[in-house]
Write a protein that binds this DNA or RNA. Structure first.
Lengths: 90, 90
DNA sequence: TCGAAGTGCTACGGAATTCGTAGCGATGGC
DNA sequence: GCCATCGCTACGAATTCCGTAGCACTTCGA
């Protein structure tokens, strides 16, 4: 499952998450991701771009149509995670 | 987002995926995950157990109730990924 | 009672990945 | 000229992951 390989890399999910609904510059995206090292951010962006989830526009990095759909899926997952977390905390 | 940290680790998503609907022994699970190194598998299992997604029963490793729900979310994601992949391949 | 085979799991050395910091070349105001 | 910002890279240290071997334990048939 190629998607698991891609998403199962450090910061991959987070990068997608931060770009959901936003268009961020490399540096802004880096800041949004807890000042991740630029080396790794660039690697993740390259991978996500090759998969067609992310693109670099004039305004900065943004999700493509596919990326937005994936972001929606992640939103569902996050909504579930929120409930799960609240259940855990009690 | 604690879930991103947990799932954004190598093999974490894959382990959950392989356990979806199955109860597997440590070794069987290892085999299912392309013979991942037992060191890493054990780390992931420990993390997933601490989060309450996975438990070790008499029959082997299995998803908990929470883990099953997460697995369902992953199934949705996978269904989407399948369509996405087919679109890509053309 | 003695293997033999299966269980979960650890040790350990080397390879791959990630991190943190510094900085490059380009571009755009002022 | 000067400064700020842009995407991005270099590089050494820290962390993580891999692959192999094997330990302690249980079960089971002979």
């Amino acid at each position: 499952m190629i998607l698991w390989d891609a998403l199962g890399r450090r910061w991959a999910l987070r990068v997608l998450w931060e770009l959901r609904g936003n268009t961020l510059s490399f540096r802004a995206l880096r800041a949004a991701c807890d000042d991740i090292s630029p080396t790794v951010l660039n690697s993740r962006l390259r991978e996500l771009r090759e998969l067609g989830f992310v693109e670099l526009t004039d305004e900065g990095y943004a999700l493509t149509k596919d990326g937005s759909e994936l972001g929606d899926q992640l939103l569902r997952l996050t909504r579930w995670a929120k409930r799960w977390h609240e259940r855990r905390e009690g």
